[in-house]
Design a binder for these strands. Structure first.
Lengths: 251, 251
DNA sequence: TGGTCTAATATGTATATACAAGCTAATGTT
DNA sequence: AACATTAGCTTGTATATACATATTAGACCA
């Protein structure tokens, strides 16, 4: 084991709840948190099974189970004889994963740009309180961002954010970094839901998205959880002629 | 072990390829095939770990791994002290799973009905050959079915089927049983892809779906594989005002 | 009859051990 | 210098064992 690895593993479980969860589950959670929060970057090497065994004083099969399950879940990738690494995000997984529109546009070789139309803070309306699962006196952020691919609008994003979980939301510059990036490091997503439907945009949305009236749009309503609390709820509107959702599954 | 269980396990691996795959993987594949093909129904009890150990002469941990992974994949459910069972299909998993529209409508407590508008056999057109990955002289079936929820059209389904993999497709009565049910038992699905977008229906589609012009529709193009071959390609058109896709994910 | 306890059975987790197989770097040879 | 071999690391799989915990059915007793 290298010195850096040793430092990596010192007090690894320190910031985890000392719940009576199985060892393999706590190890999974700890690693998943490192990855989700961005502390461990894609393609970075993860300690080997033998190193975990030495550092945590558990059996190799227990470590093996944790790493194997995280691999099945797409968090890690492993190569026999080589090691275990943080997995890269899939390019075409928009249907199954919460995606970062900036990365997606870039992966198509197109130019990405964003305009921030609104960013405010206030107490939750009744609708927002219901959607986010908070009281009506709870502080929330609201943002409206228009995302461009090659100077054509590709996504209109209206978002409500739980201020308790993402306190520095208003200080972000969303023309430089999408909300996704900040939210993932502030409150890593553990669960989420999508609701996808085809809708007609109203006059203002037509203008913003630069589409003619009667152009159908794909609307995605998404909520994401971090633990038991809802972090954010978003409504994403995509011009039907410029945007498709793609998904692939096995077994 | 009961006699029926014993019969169940006789020659369990008989119809599986004798490839040099790991034991746990072959057991997973064999069980998944029983479930996917409908031979083992939902909620049916699966042999216990001890029974598998006795019948296959392998260690319990190997069986445990197969059953545990199938549980993580949603094929089985397990209850400590009780046993292992074939899992029920999720109600709201339309986004992630290939769904059976009849079951979905029924699960909402609504009345399901279908009209078969077309059912024919012939050689593949160039477009079909490309979509299905076959030669242009390959035999395929084509069907058009309109699905109703409470006497309102909810899905227009245009489907091309590989006749080699589903030879009895034309003999089915799709007003009584959806193509999904026959296809799953004829050639269990191992992989699939979706392409989701918002579109405007043409005049004929508007009439069939009983929607006004300018009503946006959700179009899903889906292809499913059984092993290396494509079984079927379908285009599903849903009125936007009556249909939503829902998805949920963890971690 | 009704309730309680217990034995049997099921899955859940953890460990130690063993060997197979892939990759890399150092070593040795020509 | 160029090549081949090997040692040492990695993950992948399979087994035996142990104990924990959940559920059920039947034995037992009041």
């Amino acid at each position: 084991m290298t010195d850096s690895t040793s430092a990596l593993l010192d007090n690894f479980f320190a910031d985890l709840p000392d719940t009576p969860a199985p060892i393999y589950a706590r190890l999974k959670q700890a690693i998943a948190h490192k990855v989700a929060s961005g502390q461990w970057q894609a393609n970075q090497r993860v300690p080997s099974e033998a190193e975990w065994v030495k550092a945590l004083n558990v059996s190799r099969m227990t470590v093996n189970r944790a790493l194997r399950e995280l691999t099945a879940e797409g968090v890690l990738t492993r190569q026999q004889g080589l090691g275990t690494f943080v997995a890269q995000k899939k390019a075409h997984s928009a249907l199954f994963e919460v995606h970062n529109i900036a990365e997606e546009v870039a992966s198509r070789g197109a130019v990405y740009r964003a305009e921030q139309l609104q960013l405010s803070r206030g107490k939750a309306t009744v609708e927002e309180a219901v959607t986010l699962g908070v009281r009506t006196n709870h502080e929330i952020f609201r943002s409206v961002i228009l995302h461009f691919e090659n100077d054509l609008p590709i996504q209109l994003e209206e978002r409500s954010v739980n201020a308790e979980l993402a306190p520095a939301y208003a200080e972000q510059d969303f023309t430089r970094q999408t909300p996704y990036v900040y939210l993932m490091q502030a409150a890593p997503m553990t669960e989420g839901e999508h609701l996808v439907e085809a809708v007609l945009p109203n006059a203002r949305e037509c203008e913003l998205l630069q589409v003619t009236a009667n152009e159908p749009c794909l609307q995605i309503k998404r909520r994401t959880w971090s633990g038991a609390k809802i972090v954010t709820a978003a409504r994403l509107l995509h011009p039907g002629s410029r945007f498709q959702l793609f998904g692939h599954f096995s077994r």
